[in-house]
Design a protein around this nucleic acid. Structure first.
Ligand SMILES: [Mn+2]
Ligand SMILES: [Mn+2]
Ligand SMILES: [Zn+2]
Ligand SMILES: [Zn+2]
Lengths: 127, 127
DNA sequence: CTTGTTAATGCGACAAATTTGCATTAACTT
DNA sequence: AAGTTAATGCAAATTTGTCGCATTAACAAG
């Protein structure tokens, strides 16, 4: 089952590429020029994650955010960097420095989700 | 508005105290001897978080898990340790070693949510 | 260019997790 | 013992994400 190119897909990918922070479904929907169905947006995003184009972040609010991977492939994901989630403006951004967390012997770690929440620079100053 | 002592509250707190891992609403409900309403369980847990008795962990599945704080107070929370979330048995456990994550200048970090997901020792061996 | 296959979409329904309004109960104060 | 109101139970609502299914349209083959 190979992938097909569609306008919606390209538009979402372009959005994520241009965005300096991770986006959830709502954010994607409201930033798109054309109206795209909610399920479709989720399917597009999940497809991107499967294909290793995008990584999924679980926010402090339990919602899914998606960010363009800078240098991941379908085989090797290194989503080992922390994120900052602003509780005021809801921005979720990737922090650069990667991170390694030890687990007890016998455990098999697969994914890492690191989120610092608080106030981003903008929201911290305007308050 | 001061707090009142109720049987449900004490039972939930006792559960969390005895548990070696974090629990979500479902887990609390099924481990309680008596039937306690779902909303009530959520309210009890949220109250505990407010009061600094318990800390909230957002799991890899976006659900809320709650763990008894070992040495937090309402004023000073140090929920700065990572968690392991088994994708098979759903156990969420606190890992001991605390952790510090740097944020860009001007940011005001407040909470930390670190979750490693994968297979715990038991689930790793039985597979 | 026309046609066939099937991936992608839209839409409605569904499911799960959590919250909320409101009436009732019961913990604690006086 | 009586009054105040925090805590509870219950039903309904919200929110987030998924699923089934009919329809559309991307793309490969002829
Ligand atoms: Mn990221
Ligand atoms: Mn913990
Ligand atoms: Zn902000
Ligand atoms: Zn396990």
């Amino acid at each position: 089952m190979s992938r097909r190119n569609t306008a919606s897909q390209s538009a979402v990918l372009q959005l994520l590429r241009e965005s300096d922070c991770a986006l959830n479904q709502d954010m994607v929907a409201e930033r798109l020029d054309s109206v795209v169905n909610r399920s479709t947006i989720y399917r597009i995003l999940n497809r991107f994650v499967e294909d290793g184009l995008v990584h999924r972040i679980v926010g402090e609010d339990g919602r899914q955010y998606f960010a363009k991977c800078s240098d991941c492939t379908a085989e090797a994901h290194h989503h080992d960097h922390p994120h900052f989630h602003c509780v005021s403006c809801e921005r979720v951004e990737c922090l650069s420095e990667p991170l390694r967390i030890g687990v007890p012997a016998g455990y098999l770690p697969q994914q890492l989700n690191v989120t610092v929440s608080g106030y981003c620079r903008d929201c911290n100053q305007n308050s």
